[in-house]
């Protein structure tokens, strides 16, 4: 075992390879970076639905990340590894992106697609995520593309009925399995997390015995830090 990924097999869902800087970065700086980034990617133009398009409840941003082979740890920032693909505001704009992206099942290597509300980074430390958590569903190979599509269509179509609680969704392509997860803002809100779980079962057509795991981001961070401390004795 020579890097933190080995220790995190239990939670290998695309959000743990975070950089040390992220935890200590001041909120103000973070927000500024967020703004800079989104301004760069959208050329300072707000993304709005076009005429005759069907607006979504929220704007969303597609992200893609891939673990750099051989350099998975601290020197490689999570933020540097994660690329914004683009932001959309309508159903039609979503399809324009989605139809020109490969399906998760066709991704190679240790890759993730993230689809988050505009302004929320797919990172534990984002203000919208820091008190949150995620439902995790592990999928055997061959199912990720379809499950991901159903998951994000449910999210974009506001099928979860949990107010503002949803932050985003992730599909993580791994060696022997794929993982989909959906993140929400308030891990302690059991009514919300139960409703998300039930909606997931319905939209993914999961049988009642499918194992679904809820994990708070606090726990994810703790696990990462503990292992990171073991490896580098410096930690964050």
């Amino acid at each position: 075992m020579n890097n933190k990924f080995d220790a995190l097999k239990d939670d290998d869902s695309g959000d743990h390879d975070q950089n040390e800087e992220n935890g200590t970065q001041k909120d103000g700086e973070k927000e500024k970076n967020d703004r800079d980034k989104s301004q760069n990617s959208s050329k300072r133009k707000a993304v709005v639905p076009g005429p005759a398009e069907h607006p979504l409840q929220y704007n969303y941003t597609f992200w893609y990340s891939r673990r750099t082979p051989g350099r998975p740890t601290s020197s490689q920032s999570y933020e540097q590894n994660i690329k914004q693909i683009g932001t959309f505001a309508s159903v039609e704009q979503f399809w324009r992106f989605y139809s020109h992206m490969v399906r998760p099942g066709d991704l190679t290597g240790h890759s993730d697609f993230h689809l988050f509300k505009e302004g929320i980074k797919p990172m534990w430390e984002d203000d919208a995520n820091k008190n949150g958590g995620k439902w995790i569903i592990r999928l055997r190979k061959g199912l990720a593309s379809r499950c991901w599509e159903n998951l994000i269509l449910a999210m974009l179509g506001e099928q979860f009925m949990v107010g503002e609680e949803i932050c985003g969704a992730v599909v993580s392509v791994r060696f022997q399995e794929d993982i989909i997860s959906i993140w929400n803002k308030t891990a302690s809100d059991q009514a919300t997390t139960a409703r998300i779980r039930d909606t997931l079962r319905r939209v993914l057509n999961l049988p009642p015995n499918t194992i679904m795991e809820y994990k708070t981001h606090t726990d994810s961070i703790k696990a990462w830090e503990e292992f990171h401390g073991l490896v580098n004795s410096g930690g964050r």
């Binding site: 990617s41 005759a52 893609y64 693909i85 039609e92 324009r96 020109h100 490969v102």
Partner: peptide
């Protein structure tokens, strides 16, 4: 309206 690629779609080989 849903079929043309976005003008700012980044070119990520194997992804987009």
């Amino acid at each position: 309206l849903a079929r043309t690629p976005p003008c700012d779609l980044p070119d990520i080989p194997g992804v987009t």
